[in-house]
Design a protein around this nucleic acid. Structure first.
Lengths: 345, 345
DNA sequence: ATGGAGTATGTTTACGCGAACATCTCGACG
DNA sequence: CGTCGAGATGTTCGCGTAAACATACTCCAT
């Protein structure tokens, strides 16, 4: 007997079509036909092949298929962090949409915004097995690296105004911030203070800009901006600072977490919400309706953002000459109990 | 002139090594050597090749590499939803760990727990391009499908006790629930009520079981269990029900969201937290410290869960005969202001 | 019977990469 | 001045799949 080891030597590879073919006594092309559900295979042959597939434990090899077709049926998502609600919701929508289009989503997290980490992501990206990329980025960093984006790969950018030739999908930050600010003004507040996100974030910048212009349009001089970093702690700190002044009756926080932190500070100082101070957030996280008091906030349609980003990307993959567009998804103001009429004094 | 179109006909493929080789006037093997950073290439040749790579826009083809090596350097993560904090945190840890090991993470979301959706995920999984799978599942469903798991693929299961032959990593649910219950008892509460997660969830079951045995060990007959569904609303409903009785002084909710909803109900009914009723949660989400009052809760070490799951999976990928182990990650009780001594009466 | 249409199946080839092996060139050493 | 070794570079081949092409066979109209 020859030494042919049925166990296939040490490092075993998965069964291939050739293995199935050998087992079933047909050519591997016939196995391919069965595997792809073509009809021109004799019923008895088909069954024999299917049985052989099961016995040898055959699974099609995605790499070989991708090599053959030049398509991976996979999109990459580059993101800094899964710690912010918006990123996760958007990713969820992207993944759902991708599954519907029979695509798979590959995560390319960039742990920290250093150039080293970014270039690491690009290295992995260039060992690419993706047909396109969706970037969920704090845009200010993207600025520095965009030129190194590999050419010829369809890209859609979320959460930024990195306009230069990319398709961009984003929540209409400006409209949302305007809704929030106008809501507070319409309740009779003479001034609206803003707790902004970090300066590195374009979304935060957009919200702050829009808050400012909305106030100015109402003939109000905007008060100094306070910067947080999206965390509850930073909202807490900011509100402690604000509450030191007793003319503060309305606070618009750039996200729900900071609004939550702000409300905690107001509770601690014995200020009533909303009769002493109104608070409005941004995002509408699931928990916001159960805060005490339930938070008035700007609802972001993350699902739509993810869905449209995916649509755009697929369009670019189908047709590389598809012109990049920018789409803004409108927000909706959700009025709950954390905002109310300005106290008369 | 021949008809050779420099634009490469209609559907253009990305540039390959052969294209680079032609452009640089070398063999494709030399391009391969440069691409892989081998040293035995003349410096001038290397530079010429690198320049050609840039001009033709070369990116290595991952599929071809994977085909050659039989490894994809990718792990698949199957999960039901990105809507629960734990799943997201765990995924984040997995992705980070994977990146460190130079692996990529592919998401395989299962939108709803129907068999159709699950088998869809398996279909995509069997058109696999992954070296292993991590399943983050509500385990009761896994029971029904585990036999259909493709053979020969390393698998690690998180958040379940689906023991049969899989490697399992999970938070030590029982220990956490015991910590929470004992904490409330040690504050002098005579009874601890529990708002559990849905019956379909093994984690929820473990927490409830442990709560029950902890009470029994203290000589207390456990009160009826109330089931929520992890949402703030269900916590709110449950607490409204509980607060109808005035002998309820301590509530242990199976997650922070339900605890938040419960606190909202107590606020609405004018019960003080903690002097009338103590509330303890489970998870320690970022926001919990900013709830009003800040929530006493059981901290889950999601990062460790993700990290160890990934380690186990890589071990199995390296050595297919690696014996599956079960690892429980301990929790930590974080005492904040939502729990306090039982009122004397 | 003879050719044509149709069906089932087999053979060849290319997708992009890189290990293994084959050349070639140049300089050192006896 | 011939030989050997080392480094640079080229050639062949196979990974698993499926399109394209080839073959074998059956059935039927002429």
């Amino acid at each position: 007997m020859a030494d042919t080891d049925p166990m296939n030597g040490g490092r075993r590879r998965a069964a291939s079509m050739a293995d199935v073919a050998r087992h079933a006594g047909v050519s591997s092309q016939t196995v391919s036909r069965v595997s792809n559900g073509l009809t021109n295979v004799d019923e008895s042959t088909r069954e024999r092949v299917l049985a052989s597939m099961r016995t040898v434990g055959y699974r099609p090899n995605g790499a070989a298929r991708a090599l053959k077709y030049g398509r991976f049926h996979t999109v990459g998502v580059i993101m800094f962090t899964l710690e912010t609600l918006g990123n996760v919701r958007t990713l969820d929508a992207i993944a759902t949409e991708a599954a519907a289009a029979d695509y798979t989503v590959t995560l390319m997290p960039v742990p920290d915004p250093t150039m080293g980490a970014v270039s690491g992501a690009y290295r992995r990206l260039s060992e690419q097995a993706v047909d396109g990329i969706i970037i969920i980025f704090e845009a200010s960093l993207l600025d520095r690296v965009e030129i190194t984006l590999p050419p010829g790969l369809p890209v859609v950018v979320i959460d930024s105004n990195a306009g230069s030739g990319f398709a961009v999908v984003d929540t209409d930050q400006a409209q949302g911030a305007r809704l929030a600010t106008e809501h507070l003004l319409s309740l009779g507040h003479r001034q609206v203070w803003h707790i902004a996100g970090p300066t590195s974030s374009f979304s935060a910048g957009h919200r702050a800009d829009s808050w400012r212009t909305t106030l100015e349009a109402a003939g109000i001089t905007p008060p100094p901006l306070i910067h947080g970093d999206w965390t509850t702690e930073s909202g807490h700190r900011a509100a402690l600072e604000l509450a030191a002044r007793d003319d503060v009756t309305a606070i618009f926080a750039a996200n729900d977490q900071m609004a939550l932190g702000a409300m905690k500070a107001l509770h601690e100082l014995g200020r009533d919400i909303p009769s002493d101070v109104s608070v409005v957030g941004f995002d509408d996280m699931d928990e916001s309706r159960a805060f005490w008091p339930p938070l008035t906030t700007v609802h972001q349609n993350f699902r739509a953002v993810g869905r449209i980003a995916m649509e755009r990307l697929l369009a670019q993959i189908e047709d590389p000459d598809d012109a990049p567009q920018t789409t803004l998804i409108p927000t909706e103001l959700i009025v709950r109990e954390s905002s109310g009429p300005a106290a008369r004094r």
